[in-house]
Amino acid sequence: MNLISGELVEIYIAEGTTMGKVRVGGAFMRVPLTFLMETKVGDKILMESGVAISKVEVENLQEQ
């Protein structure tokens, strides 16, 4: 049940739900973006149990 991070590479609609294709290492996951509707391709996101729940602020990361 640990969170997984990845890069959003595609946004599409499937059966009325906004979905994201996410690159995780060398693999891809497809997750609902229901809770992260403001994300865009190229964003780094965190996923839990097959659902995107948080965007990682890369600028903030580089400052830290």
Binding site: T34, L36, S54, V56, E57, N60, L61
Partner: peptide
Amino acid sequence: YSRSVKREGNVAARKL
């Protein structure tokens, strides 16, 4: 953990 956490959290998730 400010790169991922906002004070109000994920508002859409909390609503559901």
